[in-house]
Design a protein around this nucleic acid. Structure first.
Lengths: 141, 141
DNA sequence: CGGGCATCGTTTGCATACGAACAGTTCAGG
DNA sequence: CCTGAACTGTTCGTATGCAAACGATGCCCG
């Protein structure tokens, strides 16, 4: 071993690497339970249903998405018929968003699954550890 | 509030959303301290320096990257002159990788920064919380 | 009231990521 | 020995993500 050359540094101990691995596993679990909707798309749809009609950029901020990113997400949700877009008559810069009937139905269907996805992702931990982990993770946002 | 319609579900409490936010913050910190190298590129370079010469797919597995993903990462590292590639004479399917002089130098320079990136990312937590968080996070991979 | 400034959405370019399909290579078992 | 399974790297398509630049619009303040 040439560990002496590495100052005790290990890639496997760096937060970034661990975050990436955890995200990968979560993504796999998500895809297994919710098909036809990506985590990002679901996040946008969920937040839109929670918030009610909003502008595109505002929804992006609420879901921590770049203006460029939220645009693509909304485009795809609209293509799927889950979100309706119409220009704001008052502020003509704005593009107002609202979930369609199908969008609300998809949200209602996916919501319990989303909770199970969180549960499955955290399954390796005990309930007490899960709560502690979520609390710590929330402070790193 | 129409929380009654949401079964106590909150997007902001789901692991996937929190993981995404934490990853975003980490990425920003990384980009601020290490320029000219992405987290993924650094991970591949670091693991290659730790492991010594390896094949492309093997490095991908060691760094939790798809075969399609590691290809692009290695291509860019080679374009930067940090990694050398040559075909394996024994197994002609394999593409052997090794860090160049510049690659090792870049790794040596970036390694202390990487540790500081981890420290900065975890800064909102106390040292005890940091250790606990990392231990829990590692079990979710 | 008018000009500078901020905000909105859009586009482009780059870099992960993953699934699926592909051709070339190796190897184990019959 | 030879065939089929497994593995290697590649390519394509799709979806995030961010930075930067852009035109259009709204608004504050002098």
């Amino acid at each position: 071993m040439d560990d002496a050359q590495h100052d005790g540094y290990r890639l496997d101990e760096q937060v970034g690497f661990l975050l990436r691995r955890a995200t990968q596993r979560h993504l796999a679990i998500f895809a297994g339970l919710i098909g036809g909707l990506t985590p990002t798309q679901f996040a946008a749809l969920a937040k839109l249903c929670e918030m009610g009609p909003t502008s595109q950029n505002a929804l992006g901020r609420a879901t921590a998405m770049d203006a460029a990113t939220i645009k693509g997400v909304i485009d795809r949700l609209r293509d799927k018929g889950l979100v309706a877009t119409l220009p704001d008559p008052i502020d003509r810069r704005r593009l107002m968003l609202a979930p369609t009937e199908a969008g609300r139905a998809a949200y209602d269907t996916a919501r319990p699954l989303a909770q199970r996805i969180t549960a499955d992702t955290l399954a390796p931990l005990t309930p007490a550890e899960q709560a502690a982990f979520l609390a710590l993770l929330a402070r790193l946002g």
